[in-house]
Write a protein that binds this DNA or RNA. Sequence first.
DNA 1: TTATGTTGATTGACTGTTCAATCAAAAACC
DNA 2: GGTTTTTGATTGAACAGTCAATCAACATAA
Lengths: 201, 201
Amino acid sequence: MPRIGMEPVRRKALIDAAIDAIHQDGMAHVTMGTIARRAGVSAGLAHHYFGGKEKLLLATMRHLLSELGTEIEQRLKQAETPRARISAIIEGNFAPCQFRPAVVSAWLAFYAAAETEPEARRLLRVYRRRLESNLVHALQDLTESRAEAGELAETIAALIDGLWIRHSLAEGEAAPGGATRLVENVVEAALAPRRSGRAKG
Amino acid sequence: MPRIGMEPVRRKALIDAAIDAIHQDGMAHVTMGTIARRAGVSAGLAHHYFGGKEKLLLATMRHLLSELGTEIEQRLKQAETPRARISAIIEGNFAPCQFRPAVVSAWLAFYAAAETEPEARRLLRVYRRRLESNLVHALQDLTESRAEAGELAETIAALIDGLWIRHSLAEGEAAPGGATRLVENVVEAALAPRRSGRAKG
DNA sequence: TTATGTTGATTGACTGTTCAATCAAAAACC
DNA sequence: GGTTTTTGATTGAACAGTCAATCAACATAA
């Protein structure tokens, strides 16, 4: 069984398993054993590759952050106007692969964990700062003052976070499209006074 | 020392201790022992009054929900117009006693726990449904369609949740007033097309 | 042989929970 | 008023279970 070059394969399998395990058992009850079994390996191997439970969980978090970052960057590359950049960021945050129940659960768990785990807190802050920086930059050409851009950016960021949370509690399947539209509406309304008043899609 | 009539005193002390313990150690690491010690009693007593760890945590959650409900209802009673009712709900959600760091931590932890604990999930849904019902009802006189009222209510609710989360990660002390203003701005902008355009405070 | 991949057993610490015993106030009785 | 009984409050120790982490050992490929 032991073929060589297994390390990246196992790492990915363990991270994916961690996401699912957090979703199913909750961060408080998740164990190395269940994660490892779900990945089809022994608990010892998980320690071998990640060096401990906390490290594995942080690696999982980094994986999620990196995936989300990629999702946003891809859309940003294709956006040509500041307004399109805003939409790219919004849409990227609600990308279907990020909106999966297990992923949403994991995000929520990491937000909660960040309250007490310094490294998790740091990671989340870095991500948040970059998101806001992107938003403010794009908004600078669309608003009149830097303060206004900052406030709108904060509003958009909070709205995105809030819609994520609500999605996690939703009974039925709420489509990502619905969330996107709500945020776009807020952006349009906030920008309306300064524009010729184009109708929304 | 054993005076009688201690039960309500101990219950409250244990619930308060639970909130602080969750804030300091995180839901994943909190134990009956630390909660009890913080409340100045033995772990056995916590079991005696609450019947177990999960029950104590659920009681803590109910306490938080009830406190928030009171905060909102008080403000709703003094509101005379639909528009004022909206503001009452927003302000109630950001009431200072709810915006304390330990309370925000606990809320976040319960949101995460609700992902796997059915009773916590149920409680959160009840609370959320009532919040939205309040919002939709007040918005009915301010919007043109029931659908629009529903969407705006969802937006406001999500924004409130999101600002809470961001507050929990905030480095500096973000004032509740700032959060209130951001939500009010969104409400005003959404309602603007239908109004004579009164300036915001 | 050497390096990598992998497991299973083991351990030491910690946790939720139970329970018998203790102690003090209150109530009932004389 | 004093004595006895009852009841609520409270603890400390003990139990049973779980988990993260370690480690020695084994298998395979180069």
